[in-house]
Amino acid sequence: MTDHDLFPAAIETERLRLRQLDRGTVGTLDLYEITGRSETIEEETRYLTMEPHDTPEETRDMIAGAEDQRENADGAVYAVYPREGESGAGEIAGTTSLTCLWDRREARPGIMLRKRFWGRGYSGERAMALMKLAFDRLDLEIFSPAHFDGNENSRRAIEKYVGRVGGQYEGVLRNWVPDGDEIHDLHRYSVSRAEWGANRPADLAVEFGDGEVANDE
């Protein structure tokens, strides 16, 4: 285990609980049900670089990769769970990540949400939590969500939460994301620390917790 605590082991928002993805919190086969066996995984990953997993070993590698990333302070990956009161409470609704480009003082979010949890505003809610992590805790300057060309769901979700905190659409970067034989154009947005400071929701309910709390439920 690492001894740094840059990234909280757990994050709670009004409706969501995020827990850092590691071998202690999420069973490989449980996650593989979502990343590999699920009938909706093709649709869920259509606009992501993530490919549906063909074997549980790929899911194991994903978890190990998340642990490495955290150890190296390159970022953190969280499993997303709806809290009590939500439909599907306690299930894994997806995964989300925050990648830190320290040289650029930049944090890049990512998310993969299962289809049955779409349309609830979870992406925006977790984005607020990750912005709080990026700006208030990690003292970074820029939060830069992005989506591939054609990903209308992500576009709407990002436009909404970026607009809410006064951020901006930057533009489309051609040939930016190599993905197998394809290279995707990437639409990039950014929120600065100043914009966050001026526009963050006053009633933002985000709490960072350590690992022990997370293990109770």
């Binding site: 320290w102 003082r105 930057e170 533009g171 040939n175």
Partner: peptide, 21 residues
């Protein structure tokens, strides 16, 4: 393409860049 904030970072130097293609 647009202005990309903090697109270059190297040591103390962090820069907003205009990108063209």
């Amino acid at each position: 393409e647009g202005v990309l904030r903090n697109f270059v970072g190297d040591g103390d130097y962090v820069s907003d860049e205009v990108r063209y293609t």
